[in-house]
Design a protein around this nucleic acid. Sequence first.
RNA 1: GGCGCAUUCGUCUAGGGGUCCAGGACGCCGCCCUCUCACGGCGGUAACACGGGUUCAAAUCCCGUAUGCGCUACCA
Length: 464
Amino acid sequence: MKLRFAPSPTGFLHVGGARTAIFNLLHARRHGGTMLLRIEDTDVERSRQRHAEQIISSLQWLGVEWDEGPVYQSDRLERYRERVEELVASGKAYRCYCTVEELEAERAAAEKAGKQWHYSGRCRAIEGDPGEPHVIRFAVSSGTIEFHDLIRGDVQFEGDLIDDFVLLRSDRNPTYHLSVVVDDIDMEITHVARGDDHLSNTPKHVLLFRAFGAAVPSFAHLPLILGSDKKRLSKRTGATSAEEYREMGIVPDALFNFLTLLGWSPGENREIFTRDDSAQWFDLSHVNKAPAVFDPEKLLWMNGQYLMRMSAEQIHPHLLPFLGDGPKTLDDLRTIIDLHKMRARTLREIAEQMAIYFVDDDAIGYDADVVKQHIKGDDLGARLAALHDALASTEPFDVATSEAALRKVAEEQGVSAAKLIHPLRLALTGKGASPPIFDVAVVLGKERSLRRLKELIERLPALG
RNA sequence: GGCGCAUUCGUCUAGGGGUCCAGGACGCCGCCCUCUCACGGCGGUAACACGGGUUCAAAUCCCGUAUGCGCUACCA
């Protein structure tokens, strides 16, 4: 068994393409088959080498591996020309000398007359001069074309409704239809899993496989991924490329898992699982038929689930690209990552939250709402001073001892611990929300914590 | 227009004739836990597109309608 992912390098890796790649990979892994990566760059107008490189880089980041390739179709142009000549020789394809301009004019005229235009196939009969510019068209025969789709079941099309399509362009480059079939034959592809948008092209491919006397592979047409507007996912409704999610701070395992669930389910209410698990359970024939809407909210949730389950060691390398100035080594960040990983949904959020540890102690910006809510009472200054003194004499300075010290002060002052904890959080972080505040204090260390507390006490009069 | 494909809570889905007055997850709303936030726990909201059949019995099978999407290129 052999499958392939065959993107065309005309842009970034689209999440729909990413899912197609994943489904191919999973099916191959599940059945002990091999996976090929093929770059379909026969459209010289739109294909770019840099796009191919970006797609490959995105696939690597996502963890979609392949056993063979990447194969570039642009390296195999002679092969397509050679095979198409075989079809011409056997009368299954023919040279067509109609120009694009002529055909366009016919099409426009038909449209004007309110009629449907079809290529007449008139060049089938003529014997032109092969030295003149021409394309090579496939001679589509009438009759029903039937094939089995692993996802849709049996599908049929009428040959009469399919125009004689172009196989080789006038610039001697193959069209997608030719190259894809020649390659799938040469590379011994047994299963073709691709986007739903190719379903209507499949009868053409079936005809070509037969014309070449080759076995027709199994097909599986995956439903599209839609945006929240129920239309094909586009920039308007959300990020469309895998790269954008990477930059957003989504971890590859989470995107992989999430994409896996778009159109497929392992059943038994399983949602979060490893690649190995999915490779064990996956089967193309259990993929949904209906298109799925991409829900960024659920992706964020899933990413959060992954982050909180990952160790600091695992998160660290993914986090590095999001870090600004400040410490970057695992040893410096381990505790902080552990403190924040369950409070963030993306790597970017972790990085942002980490900023509190690296600002200067006298440069903390206080959240106005928090000030309003917790900074009040004439005796607050005195209480905080008492807290400062208590913490100053706390030795060793750890989570348990610092908390005990604070609670003791609260008791002596006859107030609830919360009356001291909230201002302390404001002093240390400037915010109303943070990891448990004594953990924060320990990360900062006794000296810096005291400095920040002192800073708040000094700024108290100005805060009202 | 023609051809093709599809249609279960707002979203992702389970479900493949009776065990479904439809299960799980995200989101949303309560409550609990709690130094805040997050996590976690408990509970709630919410769906078989519509109309005909077939059958003792249909979310599950068939037909039609509606809606959506795809193809209809010398793009893939």
